[in-house]
Nucleic acid binder design. Sequence first.
DNA 1: TGTAAGGTTAACTAATTAGTGAATTTCATT
DNA 2: AATGAAATTCACTAATTAGTTAACCTTACA
Lengths: 96, 96
Amino acid sequence: MNSITTFEEHLDKYHGKQGTESRVKFDTKSLAFRLGVMLQEARKEANLTQEELAIKTGTKKSYISRIENGKSDIQLSTFYKLIEFGLGKPLNISIG
Amino acid sequence: MNSITTFEEHLDKYHGKQGTESRVKFDTKSLAFRLGVMLQEARKEANLTQEELAIKTGTKKSYISRIENGKSDIQLSTFYKLIEFGLGKPLNISIG
DNA sequence: TGTAAGGTTAACTAATTAGTGAATTTCATT
DNA sequence: AATGAAATTCACTAATTAGTTAACCTTACA
């Protein structure tokens, strides 16, 4: 799967069509979407299924799916938990 | 203020003393704390008060204070909003 | 020392995520 | 095309953040 193509589809869907949406809400959705793609790519690189990742992090595959599809604006700790505990990779966050 | 020193104090407080806390919960608190310090440092670099940042992002100074002190496990979009809209700086997130 | 600005804390409501089970759909493989 | 594994969606509750007000501390400095 190509992240960029899918992200463009997302832009069309939210920016193009439902034009009354605020910039902040739009950006929030974009962010959730991008992070979802990042998680999915990292999970596949680690050769885990959604269910395996869910078990390792004490949650359910349905929830992982929701996150990977950018369906919710998750908490920082949730993302951290999935990346660090579930995939054993460091999550890097910096400003500027 | 030195981030590392303060973070060590945090380690002492949560890791040393209240030892029954789960690793995940502990890490969540550390994360919130570290991000709070990052935000505060970036805000000061931008020469803004908590109140000014609050106004720019449509919230209140009391909420900014809570975040800077790592008192809550905020959502990704909240952190993003403060950094990108409030401070005009990019928020970088990556895995690995 | 008084004052004001900046920052912290407490308390509360409303909105949203976290977490779950079950049904459904997609996808790869034979 | 049939099968089974993997992923998605829906519906729901409980827990937590987002957002706010007001009171209270701290710090700088006139």
